[in-house]
């Protein structure tokens, strides 16, 4: 869901950069030598996830996993996404330079907010936990696609159709991420019931 350079208007770029900068600053304040390795590992995981493709009918989609990142890292998701997105731009040519802020904000902001919102209930057994896990996975992807659409829409009327298509085309991706998230968190809950209490989680 990376937007490239040359599309968005200057105010949108500035707004995105502002959000990304603020989020990263908040994240960096809690980053210390104890949670640095886990943040790095999760940032790498996020990067690798974007290279994992699952089939969708005759086509395929790649994983996003920003919801999981937001749940596990909180505000640290901002620097983690920033680093991953910068590496993707520089080494793989995904996204661009001036859109980096927008791309980071679009992915990290919904993840952090949904993560914080759902954190109190997501580790519960049964329907509540499952529902929260699904909401986390599907909601983060959906919200990200909405923000991408908004970035496009605010950049010009000509992009409105593209904005709508962005959201529509990400509906199935959101569903898949929702199911994935349920399975992934169910595994974590069963394999490591004490996970929530682990020290690096603030």
């Amino acid at each position: 869901m990376h937007v490239v350079d040359g599309v968005l208007s200057a105010p949108v770029l500035l707004a995105g950069a502002g959000v990304a900068l603020a989020g990263t600053a908040v994240g960096l304040r809690t980053l210390d030598h104890r949670n640095l390795p886990v943040t790095g590992v999760l940032s790498a995981t996020f990067f690798v996830a974007s290279l994992i493709h699952v089939p969708l009918g005759p086509s395929s989609v790649h994983l996003v996993l920003n919801g999981l990142l937001g749940l596990l890292l909180g505000w640290l998701a901002f620097p983690a996404v920033l680093v991953a997105a910068a590496l993707q731009a520089v080494f793989f040519g995904y996204g661009g330079l001036f859109v980096l802020g927008v791309n980071v904000a679009n992915v990290a902001l919904p993840a952090v907010l949904l993560g914080a919102l759902l954190r109190p209930w997501i580790w519960r057994e049964g329907a509540l936990g499952t529902g929260c896990a699904f909401t986390l996975g599907a909601g983060s992807v959906l919200a990200t696609s909405l923000l991408v659409a908004l970035s496009l829409a605010f950049s010009g009327e000509a992009f409105w159709v593209a904005a709508k298509l962005t959201v529509l085309s990400h509906l199935p991706v959101a569903l898949i991420e929702g199911f994935l998230c349920v399975a992934a968190l169910a595994l974590v809950r069963r394999v490591r019931p004490g996970f929530l209490a682990e020290a690096w989680q603030s």
């Binding site: 996830a49 994992i52 596990l72 994935l180 992934a184 169910a186």
Partner: peptide
């Protein structure tokens, strides 16, 4: 794939 992701994490 969800299990794979969870175990990977």
């Amino acid at each position: 794939v969800g299990h794979l992701v969870g175990m990977g994490l």
